[in-house]
Amino acid sequence: MSQGLFVHAAWIAYLVSLLAYSINTGFIRDEKAQRIVGGTGYTFLVLGFASHTVFQVMRMLDYWHQYQAFSIASASMFEALNFFAWWVALIYIITEPIAKTRLFSTFVVVIPLVSIAYSMFDQNIVRGLLSPRQLVPALKSPWLNIHVTTMFISYAAFMLSAAFAFYFLLRHKYGIGIKNIDAKFSLDEIDVLIYRFIIYGYPFLTFGIITGSIWADTAWGVYWSWDPKETWSLITWFVYTAFLHSRLSWGWKGSRTAIFALVGFLSVIITFLGVNYITKAFNIEDPHSYM
């Protein structure tokens, strides 16, 4: 079966999940009805994730058949975006029942949905959808799996914190809230969620940058070369380091840390996607670039 089919199926399932979650958060007051509609959203999220997982496995098998080596599907922009979406879905599927954040799901599920849509948009990416990307010699390394996975887990965690931060600011700064959420979550609780997702993402980001350095040293003979991707990942690390210092040392809370979380995520977006456009637009060599 076509791998594209599973990506499309995942997208449709995420869309249904988003609709169910949106109805649940925005319009349903009755708790029993909330359980049913919210449960439907969660079920479709899991179904979408399952379909997405099939795609990931098929693509990894392609790499296995091609190179007789295990490689996660992250060698092209299409694969990277799908891998990111997959991690967001996985982390949220795990954390939603634990952190009881179902009412926020709309803000989260929209991310894999947009990621997949964006991944299928570009002509180069459409090529990528059809077949696995060739792996240049430098990418044939176990460090690829470790480095990319840790970086994407951190991106996913930061994305979730940004989703909470976005809602926090809407409510706190602009007075725009959703009744169901406001009834169940105080600003303090949302603030703690922002903080928690950042402290879960931060060690992964640190580890991801470190594994990237070790890999670069093995492949390129230099553990830090100030290429745009490395530099932006360091800037992202600086932003979240400053966030943690402001929170832990200065006791910053509330809208200031929420803004910090959004700035951090903007930096993540530039690191992940923006760098590719910057290097292309400004004619800068970047061995990390996907395009």
Partner: peptide, 12 residues
């Protein structure tokens, strides 16, 4: 961070 950003916009 700001100086590093300049380095990502200007070929080095």
């Amino acid at each position: 961070a700001a100086l590093s950003i300049i380095g990502t916009f200007v070929p080095q």
